[in-house]
């Protein structure tokens, strides 16, 4: 979906999306890391279950919601990607889990 320009020297980071091992660069947000890996859809809506993906990349639209390291409904475009992050599709409404 998106490809990286060749002149990007930043450190490579590893993360997973729905269990698949992927890489991105330091400086990526979770949403940009997904786009760079060809992932267009990262959640389904709680209202009707339709698929959605990053739309505005500036924190306004809340379409890039994902589960990050077990915490649901995080705005992927506002979270800096970190080494080893476990990112998952936000499938509908999140679950309340005991702390």
């Amino acid at each position: 979906m998106f490809r990286r320009l060749p002149d990007s020297p930043a450190e490579t980071l590893r993360f997973t999306f729905d269990g698949a091992a992927l890489t991105a660069r330091r400086g990526d947000t979770v949403a940009s890391a997904l786009l760079a890996n060809g992932i267009a859809s990262c959640r389904t809506t709680p209202a009707k279950g339709t698929p959605r993906g990053p739309y505005c990349l500036m924190g306004v639209c809340f379409e890039c919601l994902v589960t990050i390291d077990g915490t649901g409904n995080r705005q992927g475009c506002l979270v800096a990607l970190e080494e080893g992050m476990r990112v998952e599709t936000q499938a509908g409404a999140r679950r309340a889990v005991a702390p």
Binding site: F2, G27, L35, L57
Partner: peptide, 21 residues
């Protein structure tokens, strides 16, 4: 999915060095 704003593509380019393909 696959429909974004033009501004989003611009942000992807500026902040992350990504271009749509």
């Amino acid at each position: 999915p696959g429909v974004l704003t033009a501004g989003a593509a611009q942000i992807a380019l500026k902040a992350h060095g990504l271009v749509p393909q």
